[in-house]
């Protein structure tokens, strides 16, 4: 018995040590990459930031710095891609929002006929400042609170008016926060979005080499991926125009 406890304790200790060492190494790489950035050696900075990402971790500042390095290196598509990844993790970060908006001004093509639905815009503005995790924990807290009050009322038999009122208020708040969480999840994760990263990106009428070119897209444009066929994605532009783009020319957010 004592032996088992000791083995478990030692394993936990080793894991903790490994995590601490790994975190220290990641922090070192991050600082080195920042140094490269400050010395205007953007290619090496990009390589080091990408190295950290390859270890399976992510953070908003990491994506933000990588976006900056790509921007300075002249790769607009990749810059916008990583700014958008950063925004997903930290939607209210002013630096990320400013740089993303700034970078998007450099896309050489404007999609004509973009019509913004006022309802969708309003709903997006409601959830935009919050992370999915934040909304999920809010929903969870309200859910727990709702069941605590239900238990008080029905389980333990506390029959007072204020419990009823608070339960109803919590239920309404829970409905709102659950909807916001679902909307955020659908908008940010279920809907597949991609950024055009190739300098030249012909948009064709079909998923074949022989298909006619309908228009030429530019790096930095964001598209919604509707379906895929072979080496092509069927994409929807902001102005609801559809077309086919080779998979290698875009990167999924």
């Amino acid at each position: 018995m004592f032996k088992n406890i000791l083995t478990g304790f030692m394993t936990g200790l080793v894991l903790l040590c490994y995590q601490a060492v790994s975190r220290a190494s990641t922090d070192d790489d991050f600082l080195k990459a920042n140094e490269f950035f400050q010395n205007k050696d953007y290619s090496r900075a990009i390589a080091l930031y990408q190295n950290i990402l390859a270890s399976g971790v992510e953070s908003a500042p990491l994506y933000f710095n990588l976006g900056n390095a790509y921007f300075k290196n002249g790769d607009l598509g990749q810059a916008i891609l990583y700014y958008m990844k950063a925004r997903r993790l930290a939607p209210s970060d002013d630096d990320i929002l400013t740089n993303l908006e700034f970078a998007r001004q450099f896309t050489s093509i404007r999609m004509e006929g973009v019509q913004l639905n006022p309802i969708t815009t309003f709903l997006e503005s409601l959830v935009a400042p919050y992370r999915l995790d934040t909304l999920a924990w809010w929903s969870s807290a309200l859910f727990i609170l709702f069941f605590v009050f239900l238990s008080l009322h029905y389980g333990l038999g506390f029959r007072s008016d204020w419990i009823k009122i608070v339960t109803i208020v919590v239920l309404v708040m829970l409905a709102v926060s659950s909807w916001m969480t679902t909307y955020k999840y659908r908008h940010d994760y279920l809907t597949r979005r991609a950024v055009i990263i190739a300098p030249e990106c012909p948009v064709t009428s079909g998923p074949y080499e022989q298909s006619e070119i309908e228009l030429e897209a530019a790096p930095g444009l964001v598209v919604e991926i509707l379906s895929e066929s072979g080496t092509y994605y069927n994409v929807l532009f902001e102005n609801k125009r559809r077309g086919w783009i080779k998979k290698e020319l875009v990167a999924e957010i």
Binding site: R23, T26, D27, F30, L31, N34, F37, Q38, K40, Y42, I52, L53, G56, V57, E58, S59, A60, P61, L62, F64, N65, N68, A69, F71, K72, N73, G74, L76, A90, D95, T98, N99, F102, A103, F106
Partner: peptide, 21 residues
């Protein structure tokens, strides 16, 4: 855009909270 573009906000010094990708 490129090395001369200086209007973007500068990089962050803290890597922040790392989570699994």
């Amino acid at each position: 855009i490129g090395k001369q573009a200086s209007d973007i906000r500068f990089i962050k010094n803290d890597i922040g909270r790392l989570t699994s990708k």
